[in-house]
Design a protein around this nucleic acid. Sequence first.
DNA 1: GTCTATAATTCGATAGAC
DNA 2: GTCTATCGAATTATAGAC
Lengths: 206, 206
Amino acid sequence: MSLKNNNKTDATTEEKIVEAARKLFTEKGFDAVKTRDIADEAGINLALLNYYFRSKKKLFEIITKENFGHFILIISEIVNDKKTSIRQKIEILVANYIDMFSINPDMPLFVLSHAKHYAQEMKIREKFMDSYFLKQVQKAIISEEIKPIDPTNLLFNIMGLTIFPFAGRHIFQNKNGITKEQFTALMQDRKKMIPIWIEAMLKAKS
Amino acid sequence: MSLKNNNKTDATTEEKIVEAARKLFTEKGFDAVKTRDIADEAGINLALLNYYFRSKKKLFEIITKENFGHFILIISEIVNDKKTSIRQKIEILVANYIDMFSINPDMPLFVLSHAKHYAQEMKIREKFMDSYFLKQVQKAIISEEIKPIDPTNLLFNIMGLTIFPFAGRHIFQNKNGITKEQFTALMQDRKKMIPIWIEAMLKAKS
DNA sequence: GTCTATAATTCGATAGAC
DNA sequence: GTCTATCGAATTATAGAC
């Protein structure tokens, strides 16, 4: 994104199309969004979409790479930090994910929905498996600070507690459910609680 | 479903169409599935689909009601049982969900993806909030057996730990990831561990 | 009930004027 | 670069024969 054009009115046509596509694709996925919807949302003519991006699929792949990129970046830049403890890594990981999803709450479901066709290159599990974080965990298991746990199950737990509320929020956020404000407050609460809960799980005896 | 016709070869045309629709819609959602795909999968002519079900949308709504129905039934029939403890309820709930999702691993992502438009009548949070289970939890909080927790956060935790691995399995199950067999084994492991983990979380001090 | 053929519509993409 | 007009393919749905 150009430094000059970071608000919507000043944005170039190309940027307006990407912004519209980002919003709609992330919210509804590939098939449910029509090129005409994107053109309308961007306030431009349908023909311009193909002029700039050749096809719907090419445009979609830009958004997919963005979303998967943001998703994987958070985990990548945390798990190999030599200076932080297990607990600190979990705190930062959870806080960063919750902050990102609070801004873009449709991203989690987008990633889950498109993982089958686009997660091959993401290698999220491989990055986790080869991480310094996991070495710290294994060391803590050997020294009996925490109980043995399958690394994949640990990854499921961290991600499940963090991501699920966003991916499933429409189950709970409806006319008889919680409000957007209540949801936001709960997520802030979870930022603090999830690391505490995970630590308790890691010390629980089976 | 008729008692006489519960295998695919003996199934009536109507049942064959529903079975094909169930498989494809649950796996891919509404927009990605074409009526021709359903007709092919069912081994019938395209025109018969409209003859029996009038439209693609009507057929889709049958499958949606099925999936949401199965999803909600498990929680409904467990949380108000006066005879079981908190721990037993969590054990049964987790085991029933994992057993169902092991047979139908696409159901969780289907439910999450379509919750925005179809979860209004489901009232999963309301059922949880009004449940005997939650009364047991509140009693246990007062007697200081467990630490205070927001009920919605407890629901997020139980569902997140149980459902997320299935909803996100394509992130982990790919050519560099875990095999289907490893995944199945992990889920069986989690059936035992999740109740233990949740109990530990409920006793963790903030 | 089931099929073939086709109508009706939607949708992605492009031609060509400005 | 941007627009109008339209093409052509894909897709849902239906008419009508058997």
